[in-house]
Amino acid sequence: MKKRIKYGLFLLLSLVCICFLLKYLIFDREMKETQEIQTYKAFHANQLLLESNHKNLNLESLIEKAIEIEGEIKEIVYKHHKYSLLIKGNENKFYILCEMQADQNSKISKLKPGENVKLKGILKGFLMDIILLNCIILDKEIYE
């Protein structure tokens, strides 16, 4: 009889543990960091802006994918407690707007407008500019 109770308690505890583990794995999963996501495609900023503007590139197929871009910094913005880099192409009308991941703040302080930078971020779509979130800086040579 005692053995049965012990077995029952063990089973109940195991079930509770599994439930908590499932809740953690499925429901409480935090957003992935960009470092953990594989790059889908790499572009030069000008190429991305030009091709998307002329509809040569189907941007929809890249949405929610990690892409790399290389280009000149037009502006560094600190707004809503977050840094963003505005990357320019040859045209000065539309830009690539990269909202930076929070762990990149120390690297951003070493950047200046006019410098070239290589970034990786998650493409979210476009309004006036092409929008990337959770961007990280890839150009390690500057910082090492």
């Binding site: 409480d28 999963r29 957003m31 979210k124 779509g125 309004l127 979130l133």
Partner: peptide
């Protein structure tokens, strides 16, 4: 005003 819906940031990935 134009709002890109995918640019909403959530705490949990399942919510997103």
């Amino acid at each position: 005003v134009s709002i890109l819906m995918r640019a909403f940031v959530f705490k949990k990935s399942l919510m997103h």
